[in-house]
């Protein structure tokens, strides 16, 4: 017993070193799991507060740009309003519409922190559980998809953007084209890679990429980007496609969290049929 004790005293520095390294590695490994709500991350209270204060300063610098962007988006939305269409049919009868039920709800949020030059990047937004944001919800920006919510705290959420190793979403070439899988290889923040488009399909540089229909996180046909280059892969039957992302992560500051109102129903149904097999 005395020997063990004296050993401990003699090598206390080394033991402490090993202990601290092991705890760090445990933290790293725990943080990897995608669905677990990580205890400490940028949606935690202190760091989110610091980022919010800092962001409020920085925002003034980009105010005019941001106003222009919002005005553009307002104009685009205004174009879709009923009163901006000419009513050609006089016989039309107005009915209280119960045919269409709302499927997606959008929660506007402000980006308080974003990294783009790491291998695993994160975005922190200023809406959380109290505003209806939940994990695994999709996030889109004015120009296209942004990412998926990873963790939520009461008033903040951290988002895995396209620029993250774990990010994957099904995407198609053109509206109604073939489905592939979009991911990011850790390179430039302007480009992502689309996989799984068969070689016999005809594609061209400049083709638009949209979100697929079977992803429940995003509405169908949200813009992802355009094809900037592609090469047929020599090892398999698919193309290697470079996609120029439509969202500019360097300048993004307002996003919308997508709440699919029927997601639970869909998931329960799918779960149910899987259990029956």
């Amino acid at each position: 017993m005395r020997n063990i004790f004296s050993l401990l005293v003699r090598y206390h520095a080394f033991m402490l070193f090993i202990l601290l390294e092991v705890s760090s590695i445990v933290l790293i490994v725990n943080n990897k799991s995608y669905h677990r709500a990580a205890f400490i991350n940028s949606s935690s209270v202190i760091s989110a507060k610091v980022f919010t204060v800092y962001n409020n300063f920085i925002e003034y610098i980009h105010l005019s740009q941001e106003n222009k962007r919002l005005a553009d988006e307002n104009a685009a939305l205004r174009n879709q309003l009923k009163n901006s269409f000419y009513d050609a049919s006089f016989q039309q009868i107005t009915v209280n519409d119960s045919v269409y039920k709302q499927l997606y709800k959008y929660i506007p949020a402000k980006v308080v922190n974003i990294t783009i030059n790491k291998l695993n990047n994160y975005i922190t937004i200023d809406k959380g559980k109290n505003q209806g944001v939940d994990v695994k919800m999709g996030v889109i920006g004015p120009n296209g998809i942004v990412g998926i919510v990873k963790d939520v705290s009461d008033n903040y959420a951290s988002v895995i953007p396209v620029l993250h190793n774990d990010f994957k979403v099904s995407a198609r070439v053109g509206a109604g084209g073939n489905l592939g899988s979009l991911s990011w290889n850790g390179g430039s923040p302007e480009f992502a890679q689309l996989d799984g488009i068969p070689k016999q399909i005809k594609i061209a540089v400049g083709d638009k990429i949209y979100t697929g229909s079977e992803t429940k996180k995003f509405p169908e046909n949200i813009l992802v980007g355009i094809i900037s280059s592609f090469t047929p892969n020599t090892n398999d039957n698919f193309y290697d496609i470079e996609v120029h992302l439509s969202t500019d992560f360097r300048s993004i500051s307002y996003v919308y969290v997508v709440n699919n109102l029927m997601k639970n129903e869909l998931e329960n149904l799918e779960q149910h049929s899987q259990n029956d097999n």
Binding site: E21, L27, I28, N31, I40, N41, S42, F51, S158
Partner: peptide, 21 residues
């Protein structure tokens, strides 16, 4: 110190491990 940086950059444990070394 490492953990503090981790807290702000979403790199849980990585800076802590490097700083301890």
């Amino acid at each position: 110190a490492g953990l503090t940086i981790d807290l702000f950059s979403n790199t849980m444990g990585m800076h802590a491990a490097a700083s301890v070394l």
